[in-house]
């Protein structure tokens, strides 16, 4: 899932300052699952903001809507009325939702982000999420025992652990596991260590963001 984290209240407050009628727009997909921008988080933020404005003696109207998802036009369109009625939309989706609600609603509608979009990750344990994929556009997991060195090595190395790997930990932080240690262990367990003898040549970063904004087109699905 795409993992997000709510921005500090002070930052949200400052960006909402000019507006009197706010629609907080949650998203029912990834950010619901990672407890950052689903229906409940919309409720909490709305309640917090209502109390804040009441304290400040400001009259601000706050609406709450949570869509099935913000990355599909068909789920945004039924809510356009409410979106148009607001001065501003505070989207609690990932950066994708923030942009797409704006795209669908049109340039008159101001959509602001309530979250910082962090990464593609997993729910490691309750209350903890961790990065697993960097969306590089050219998956190498078949060569790396299913553990991604692009997303999980601080240097994105492709030819094994650097000299900073110690006791299974990364040099940048003892909390961080060395991805290449994990790859090594798994290949060893599988009796496939010889895979690490091969030199992986310089990666083609064209399919990644370095090649410019990306698009996927499936002609068979187009109308």
């Amino acid at each position: 899932m795409i993992v997000g984290e709510r921005k500090p209240l002070e930052e949200i407050r400052a960006m909402l300052d000019p507006y009197r009628k706010i629609l907080i727009l949650g998203c029912g997909e990834c950010v619901s699952v990672c407890m950052a921008g689903g229906e409940k988080e919309v409720g909490i933020l709305a309640s917090q903001l209502r109390m804040l404005y009441k304290r400040q003696g400001r009259e601000v109207e706050i609406g709450e809507v949570t869509l099935i998802r913000q990355c599909d036009r068909e789920y945004i369109e039924p809510h356009l009325d409410k979106i148009y009625q607001a001065d501003v939309v505070l989207s609690m989706a990932c950066g994708v939702g923030v942009q797409f609600v704006g795209e669908v609603a049109g340039e008159e509608v101001i959509v602001l982000p309530a979250l910082n979009t962090k990464f593609y990750g997993v729910n490691l344990e309750a209350g903890m999420w961790a990065e697993r994929c960097a969306g590089c556009g050219d998956c190498v997991l078949d060569k790396t025992a299913g553990i991604c060195p692009i997303a999980r090595c601080a240097k994105r190395l492709l030819n094994g652990p650097c000299g900073g790997s110690q006791g299974g930990r990364c040099e940048i932080n003892p909390e961080v596991e060395c991805a290449w240690q994990l790859i090594h262990e798994r290949l060893k367990a599988r009796g496939q260590l010889e895979l690490l003898e091969e030199i992986v040549p310089a990666k083609n970063w064209k399919p990644s963001l370095s090649g410019g904004p990306r698009k996927v087109i499936r002609e068979d699905l187009r109308l």
């Binding site: 240097k155 190395l157 030819n159």
Partner: peptide
């Protein structure tokens, strides 16, 4: 490949690592 920028005096820098030391 080089020490990670977290050790240095420009910790907010973006790193490159387009290729690694073997490449």
């Amino acid at each position: 490949s080089g020490d990670h920028q977290i050790f240095g005096n420009q910790k907010e820098a973006a790193n490159v690592f387009d290729i690694d030391s073997i490449q």
